[in-house]
Amino acid sequence: MLDVTGLSAGYGAAKVLHDVSLTVDEGKFVVLTGPNGHGKTTLLRVLSGLLPADEGDMLFCDERLNGRSTAAIVARGLVHIPQGDLLFVDLTVEQNLFMGAYLSAAWRNRRERIRRVYELFPRLEERRTQQARTLSGGERRMLGIGRGLMSNAKLLMVDEPALGLAPVLVQEVYATLERISRSEATVLLVEETLANARGIADYVYLMDTGRIVHEGTMAEFGADVLHSTYLGNRGS
């Protein structure tokens, strides 16, 4: 479904990603993990067209993404739910969700889609006329994910959904993501630790200093791999 080969990118002279290759198969729950500040979010920004790729190829459903606008990439069903939610804080919850269905194919079905999001997150329906800025941290995360689900997403890229959430809410969010990955869309999840996704992930990529240093199924991902990455790079 998503095929990345030999991807390099960065901010001007500062190269962040070096020769990254990664594959996400349809219907799988794939996790991209690794210490913070090592390029995971940058990779998502390149995939969604917010940042240009310097080298390499990105294929999504057999179409090349290089050089395409974010609007064109979203229209193909590759949807990025950004870290920190990036809500439209002065719009209401409902308006935020409708914005998630901005593209015309999704806009036509927005009422039907919003019903499904409300079924998934009943709390959002209770808050639907409130401004997004009045929501609690957990509600904001639900809105961020719900907004992503309003699109015609085939592959959802979710960046650090557990960040800043209370443990009980983290469980709820991951249970929802698991349900989504089974019934709605393939999921590529980015997170710093594997703690939350341990029981869900089908396949894991470990990124360190902008490179994929290890990959495999959850079972192949022993504690030794993680330890060497984290302990080797931390403390500096």
């Binding site: 969604s48 974010t70 979203v74 229209a75 990036l86 804080v89 914005m99």
Partner: peptide, 11 residues
Amino acid sequence: QQFDAARLMGV
């Protein structure tokens, strides 16, 4: 309100 997020919605 949120330029990057608007782009991620396909605007």
